[in-house]
Design a protein around this nucleic acid. Structure first.
Length: 563
RNA sequence: UGGGGCGUCGUCAAGUGGUAAAGACACAGGGUUUUGAUCCCUGCAUUCAGAGGUUCGAAUCCUCUCGCCCCAGCCA
């Protein structure tokens, strides 16, 4: 990991070069600037990790600053959620979150200064006219008839805009740059608009609000940001970013650097599409464990470390990328394999009666909490005449490479005994297997045979007399197509109908009764699971989420055979 | 057809003129194993979108071509 880190990416190289040249007196200050108009997803995590890691690596700092200049879309609940996500990931944003709205007074002063310099004017064209005057991608725009208003007139109008004397859309403040610029962002962009709407933080103090291009660069400058990292679509805005700071001669002039945002296959990562999934009821909400939002991933059992590792594994570049969902899973499994204590649970129970085990008796067996880590300690699991095993672990007529239980075969019950299947009981109506009758070898207690005989398979199991009932939610990828929007189809047409599979009547070892929400266990041979934090205590039986499966080479073999 | 970007293995991604083009994931094979998990080996780009050129030497420099992405909100 560390070695991977030292290799670095182009942004890191730029910062290192700046440091070498003592560009900002050796300071590195970055920021993560979300607009509180939605919930954060894994795509945002890439930006969060980048900004915080660069600050961390170079002994700088990283601010969490809300870009809250459009009260029409922003809400307190998003602010709260974003703060909690960043904290969950474990990043330190200097104690307190910052807000662009805290700078509204200074931003206003800057706007006035721009007017005084003759570099901004109040335009009274309608929205539609502004669009017409802007020209097109291939044709230059033309000057607004209001472009040459006097400074006095502009100041008067702008003041009255601020005082709420005009209606929305009647006037706006524009930077006076170049209507013929090949870069449309430079064609006298609007920098202030009238919006008679209360703001979540400034209430009804303001009737005018600054636009992104004006707010962002100045907020960066005010905070002394050295490297302003953003996504590729803002590349065209950089000349405007620089123009504003130059005209206003700010003490600090951060360097904007753009990188590519990511996509992940089999899912979608845009607020708009995610919102549709919620609004149209395809998922249970923004925190549905199938969603790629941070709150959903947390609920599902993802660890902050797995997300951070993922973000550094995908790298930073300017190439549009579609990352394998498998990579995310790999990072998750790697982390969970280290951290998750082992338990046993049976999802599709099949009863096994051990006919030579004394009726009415039971015993406690010792089980390791982690096969490679003795420091995880041990626990006891109880064993008796009746147990449950996984239905998939038995086949009446097994194929060649099936190592599990079958008539006449002997297997090991993990941490318990060798058992041999003697007979199979079936429902006479349906033919469904209802019970297996087996014998056990008392000499194999703990799982080793004193005579040295080997068995090929080891099965997980639970004591039928002493286990807990639970519902388990199994998740699969949300979409069936790598690119949910492929072939020009609406992405909702590619939804995976089996992305949620609710298993009722699962049997788990009793030790799981004390499991805390979001604390992930490995159910041996099955995968990683945690108690659902939202449903916890709201149903008669606990609900476990399957965070991710284990790698399953048996499933792979089967898949191949079926092809 | 204007402007701004991007093109290195199936997917990400190092590489910034000098002998053999990192690494990760995926994939394939083998070993260990009381999880068909983990772990450990091995293999996996004579080639860097394509074509020319400069050079003793190019993925790296030059020219042209092709492909893909972004921009015409009083959104961010």
């Amino acid at each position: 990991m560390e070695e991977n880190d030292t290799r670095g990416h182009f942004i890191q190289s730029i910062i290192e070069e700046d440091l070498k040249n003592n560009k900002n007196d050796g300071r590195v200050v970055t920021r993560f600037p979300p607009e509180p108009n939605g919930y954060l997803h894994i795509g945002h995590a890439k930006s969060i990790c980048l900004n915080f890691h660069m600050a961390e690596r170079f002994n700088g700092r990283c601010n969490l600053r809300f870009d809250d200049s459009n009260p029409e879309k922003e809400e307190q609940k998003y602010i709260d959620s974003i703060i909690s996500n960043v904290e969950w990931l474990g990043f330190d944003y200097n104690g307190t979150p910052l807000f662009a709205s805290d700078y509204f007074d200074r931003l206003y002063e800057y706007a006035v200064r721009l007017i005084e310099k003759g570099k901004a004017y109040v335009c009274s064209l309608t929205g539609e006219q502004i669009r017409e005057y802007r020209g097109t991608l291939t044709e230059p725009g033309k000057d607004s008839p209001y472009r040459d208003r006097t400074v006095e007139e502009n100041i008067d109008l702008f003041t009255r805009m601020k005082n709420g004397e005009f209606g929305e859309g009647e006037h706006c403040l524009r930077a006076r740059i170049d209507m013929a610029s090949p870069n449309i962002n430079m064609r006298d962009p609007v920098i202030y608009r009238i919006k008679k709407m209360p703001h979540p933080r400034t209430g009804d103090k303001w009737k005018i609000y600054p636009m992104y291009d004006f707010t962002h660069c100045l907020s960066d400058a005010i905070e002394g940001i050295t490297h302003s990292l953003c996504t590729l679509e803002f590349e065209d805005h950089r000349p405007l970013y620089d123009w504003i700071l130059e005209e206003l001669e700010t003490e600090c002039h951060p360097q904007q650097i753009e990188f590519a945002r990511m996509d992940i296959n089999f899912t979608v990562l845009s607020k708009r599409k995610l919102k549709r999934l919620v609004d149209e009821g395809h998922v249970g909400g923004w925190d549905d464990p199938r969603m790629p939002t941070l709150q959903a991933m947390r609920r599902r059992g993802f660890t902050p470390d797995s997300i951070k590792t993922f973000c550094s594994a995908i790298g930073i570049s300017k190439k549009i990328s579609r990352i394998d969902y498998g990579l995310l899973e790999n990072c998750l499994r790697n982390d969970l394999n280290e951290k998750a204590p082992r338990r046993m649970g049976v999802l599709n129970p099949l009863e096994v009666e051990i006919e030579n085990y004394p009726e009415g008796e039971s015993e406690e067996l010792t089980a390791l909490n982690h096969p490679q880590k003795p420091e995880f300690g041990e626990r006891t699991v109880s064993f008796s005449r009746r147990i449950y095993i996984e239905r998939d672990d038995f086949m009446e007529d097994p194929p060649k490479k099936f190592f599990r239980l079958a008539p006449g075969r002997e297997v090991r019950l993990r941490f318990a005994y060798f058992i041999t299947c003697k007979s199979v009981e079936k429902d006479p109506e349906t033919g469904e297997i209802t019970k297996l009758v087996c014998t056990y070898d008392p000499a194999t207690k703990g799982g080793d045979a004193p005579d040295g005989r080997k068995v090929k398979g080891t099965l997980h199991w639970v004591n039928a007399h002493d286990c807990m009932e639970a519902d388990v939610h199994l998740y699969d990828r949300l979409f069936m197509a790598e690119n949910p929007e492929e072939k020009g189809r609406d992405f909702t047409e590619n939804l995976n109908p089996d992305s949620l599979n609710v298993k009722k009547g699962c049997k788990l070892e009793k030790n799981l009764e004390t499991a805390e929400p979001e604390y992930v266990y490995q159910f041996e041979r099955l995968g990683y699971f945690c108690v659902d934090s939202k449903l916890s205590g709201k149903q008669d039986v606990p609900v476990f989420n399957r965070t991710v499966t284990l790698r399953d080479s048996w499933a792979k073999i089967q898949k191949k055979r079926n092809k």
